[in-house]
C-alpha cells in the first residue's frame, strides 16, 4: 500500500513538473520533435542496412566459389526464388544454411561440456539448421500452390464458359476479367501469365505450366494449347471442368475434416480438467480412508 502511495505521488510530481515547468523552456513543439526523431531513426536504419548489404555483397562475392553450391542446386534455388519473387540470391540461402548449422554446432559443443547426453541430442539441430532455410521456402511455395489451386476452379469455369460459346477469344481478356476475383497468389501468377502473353499465348501457357507444375494446371495448359492449334475440344474441356468441380468439393471436405480434428484436440483440454478434478477427488477419498483406519 505504501509503495502504491509513493508511486502515485511520484506520478503526481512528474505530472505537475511537465504541466508547469516544462513548457517554459520547451524549445521545440512535440510534434516537430517526434517527426525529426522519426526521420533520424529512419535514416540511421537505412545507413545501417546499406552498410550491411555492402559487406554481405563483398563476402558473398569472395565466398561464392567456396559455398558447396553445385550448378544444379543453384538452378533449383533460383527457380524457387523466382517463383516467390524474392530479392535474394542462392548464395545467400546457402550462407544462411551454413550459419545456422555453425551456430547449432557451437551451441551443442557448449552443451556437451555441461551435460554430454543433452549435448549429443542437441546435435540434431545442426541438421535441422541445414534444412531449415530451404524447407521454409518450399513451404511457402506449397502454400502458394494451394492458394492457386483453390482459385483455379473459378478461373477455369470462366474460361470454359467463354470458350464454349466461341473459339475466337483472347485469353488475356478472360484473365483480365478474372483478376478482380482472384486471391493474392493467383493474381500474382496470372499477372506473370499476362506479361508473357505479349510474346504469344502458347509461350505464356508453356511458361505457366513450367512455373506451376500441378496436375490440373498442366492439363489446362495442354487443352488450351490444342485449342490454339485450331482443334475444337469442348468435350475435353467439359471433362476437366467436372474434375475441377470434384476438386472444389474435396477442398471443402478437407477443411471440414481439419476443423473436426482441431475441435477434438481443443476438447481434449476439457477432459484433462475433468481428470484433474477426479484425481483430487480420489486423493481426498484416500486420505479419508486412511484417517478412518488410522
Amino acid at each position: 500500500m505504501v509503495i502504491f502511495a509513493k508511486l502515485l505521488s511520484l506520478a503526481a510530481i512528474i505530472y505537475m513538473v511537465s504541466m508547469f515547468v516544462y513548457p517554459v523552456f520547451r524549445p521545440m513543439s512535440g510534434k516537430r520533435k517526434k517527426r525529426s526523431r522519426e526521420f533520424l531513426s529512419v535514416s540511421r536504419k537505412r545507413m545501417k542496412t546499406e552498410k550491411y548489404l555492402y559487406f554481405k555483397d563483398i563476402i558473398l562475392r569472395q565466398l561464392s566459389n567456396k559455398l558447396l553450391l553445385s550448378e544444379i542446386k543453384r538452378e533449383q534455388l533460383n527457380f524457387i526464388i523466382s517463383r516467390l519473387d524474392l530479392k535474394i540470391t542462392p548464395e545467400e540461402i546457402r550462407l544462411s544454411q551454413i550459419i545456422y548449422s555453425m551456430v547449432a554446432l557451437l551451441l551443442s559443443m557448449f552443451v556437451i561440456k555441461l551435460m554430454p547426453l543433452l549435448g549429443y541430442i542437441c546435435l540434431i539441430f545442426v541438421v535441422l539448421g541445414w534444412l531449415y532455410p530451404i524447407d521454409e521456402l518450399e513451404k511457402k511455395v506449397e502454400q502458394k500452390n494451394k492458394n492457386i489451386l483453390k482459385d483455379f476452379p473459378a478461373f477455369y469455369s470462366m474460361v470454359y464458359y467463354q470458350y464454349a460459346r466461341s473459339i475466337n477469344i483472347y485469353l488475356a481478356d478472360v484473365i483480365k476479367d478474372f483478376l478482380p476475383n482472384a486471391n493474392y497468389d493467383m493474381a500474382d501468377e496470372l499477372g506473370v501469365l499476362l506479361d508473357n502473353i505479349e510474346y504469344g499465348e502458347e509461350y505464356a501457357l508453356k511458361q505457366f505450366k513450367k512455373r506451376v507444375p500441378l496436375r490440373h494446371i498442366i492439363k489446362f495448359c495442354d487443352i488450351m494449347e490444342t485449342r490454339l492449334k485450331g482443334y475444337d475440344n469442348t468435350s475435353q474441356m467439359a471433362y476437366l471442368k467436372n474434375e475441377l468441380y470434384d476438386l472444389r468439393v474435396v477442398a471443402l471436405e478437407d477443411e471440414l475434416n481439419h476443423r473436426k480434428g482441431s475441435n477434438e484436440r481443443t476438447q481434449f483440454v476439457l477432459i484433462v480438467v475433468l481428470v484433474i478434478y477426479i484425481l483430487v477427488y480420489y486423493y481426498y477419498q484416500f486420505i479419508g480412508a486412511i484417517k478412518l483406519f488410522g
Binding site: 476452379p153 473459378a154 469455369s157 470462366m158 464458359y161 467463354q162 470458350y163 464454349a164 460459346r165 466461341s166 477469344i169 481478356d173 476479367d177 468441380y245 472444389r248 468439393v249 471443402l252
Partner: peptide
C-alpha cells in the same frame, strides 16, 4: 464481350458445391 454472360454460371456451380 461475346460469350461472357455465361461467367455467372460458375456461381451456380460454386453454390452446388456449397
Amino acid at each position: 464481350r461475346k460469350g461472357m454472360a455465361d461467367v455467372f454460371l460458375d456461381i451456380v456451380d460454386e453454390n452446388a458445391a456449397l
